[in-house]
Simulated assay, not measured.
Amino acid sequence: PQALGGLGASLPQLFRLLIELGEADSNLPQIVRAHFGFVEGRLSSRDSESQNYWFAKVVDGELWGAAMAERTDTTRNSVTLSAVDSGWQLDGEKYYCTGTLYANWIAAVALDGEDFVSLAVRTDAPGVTVEDDWDGFGQRLTGSGTTRFKAVNVPEQHIVRRFKKDELRAESYLSAFYQLFHLATLAGIANAVLRDATEFVKGRTRAFGVPGQSSPKDDPL
């Protein structure tokens, strides 16, 4: 919002811009997905103190990546947040950390006992290791590598939210927001396919089964 120092883009404007970005390079919307998710999460929290603290950093140009997923056959969470004399300590490993390689901050999730905790950690904090080891098929530039936390100090102010074990953690609004990012990326890819295919066939003067010169646009098939 403009009142918080932003440009005030609406959600329809944002996703139209993301489609254009995806048409140019499908890596790019993926890279900023976690960043915009973090921002939207703070907006939907309606916590003015948290908004003022984090949005000052966002407006200053700082970026967020993600450290949510783990490489297991379940959705369990092995990264832990423990109470220590200096506050909180984060330990463990995350994978598929899209955008974190380029980010100033990491939006992470951890366990404190049986509670799920959302928190933010600086990528250059002591004990944080961000590895450029993503070798998955496609979108190689998303920086979706491994992130390791070893005795990372986390101030209380950087703990964003807690969920009890029996609470519903999947919030329908933010889940839809994250999925719209994927759809915007796909729409951009589809636009690029149409553009490239059109340019490819425009200059052709020969079509199968049609004698002499012809244009593909005149081919009924």
Score class of each variant (00 low, 15 high):
16 R>S: 14
38 F>E: 05
35 H>L: 05
67 A>C: 14
18 L>D: 06
24 A>F: 12
4 L>K: 11
13 Q>T: 13
47 D>V: 07
9 A>E: 06
71 R>K: 11
29 P>G: 10
15 F>G: 02
21 L>Q: 11
33 R>C: 07
59 V>A: 10
55 F>K: 02
56 A>D: 13
71 R>Q: 09
18 L>W: 02
44 S>V: 13
50 S>V: 10
14 L>K: 06
56 A>T: 11
8 G>K: 02
48 S>F: 08
17 L>A: 15
22 G>T: 12
55 F>N: 08
9 A>V: 06
7 L>K: 13
25 D>P: 04
30 Q>G: 11
44 S>I: 12
42 R>P: 00
73 D>P: 00
6 G>T: 02
13 Q>K: 04
26 S>T: 04
32 V>Q: 06
44 S>F: 06
31 I>V: 14
67 A>G: 15
57 K>Y: 02
54 W>T: 07
7 L>I: 12
29 P>L: 08
22 G>W: 03
39 V>K: 07
32 V>F: 13
32 V>K: 02
74 T>R: 05
35 H>K: 08
25 D>W: 07
14 L>Y: 06
34 A>T: 12
43 L>T: 03
14 L>C: 05
10 S>Q: 03
33 R>I: 01
47 D>T: 09
59 V>T: 12
61 G>M: 08
19 I>V: 15
19 I>T: 15
30 Q>C: 11
22 G>M: 04
68 M>T: 05
18 L>K: 08
62 E>H: 08
65 G>M: 01
71 R>Y: 05
38 F>A: 12
16 R>E: 15
17 L>W: 03
57 K>T: 00
21 L>H: 06
61 G>R: 09
63 L>W: 07
3 A>K: 11
49 E>T: 14
63 L>K: 10
72 T>W: 00
40 E>F: 10
74 T>W: 00
56 A>R: 13
32 V>Y: 13
63 L>T: 08
8 G>C: 08
36 F>I: 11
58 V>M: 00
62 E>T: 12
42 R>V: 15
12 P>L: 04
21 L>D: 12
14 L>R: 09
53 Y>F: 15
10 S>L: 03
27 N>F: 02
58 V>K: 00
5 G>R: 02
23 E>N: 11
35 H>Y: 01
27 N>D: 15
3 A>H: 07
37 G>I: 01
73 D>S: 05
26 S>H: 11
64 W>Q: 01
38 F>N: 03
52 N>D: 10
53 Y>C: 01
57 K>N: 10
32 V>N: 04
42 R>N: 14
67 A>N: 09
60 D>S: 15
52 N>Q: 13
71 R>C: 03
19 I>H: 05
75 T>E: 09
21 L>I: 01
19 I>R: 15
12 P>T: 06
35 H>C: 04
45 S>H: 05
14 L>F: 13
17 L>S: 13
59 V>P: 02
10 S>M: 04
71 R>V: 00
44 S>Q: 15
68 M>W: 09
51 Q>W: 02
66 A>P: 00
17 L>D: 12
47 D>P: 09
58 V>R: 01
43 L>V: 15
17 L>Y: 04
72 T>V: 01
22 G>Y: 07
32 V>S: 09
26 S>K: 05
52 N>V: 10
20 E>S: 14
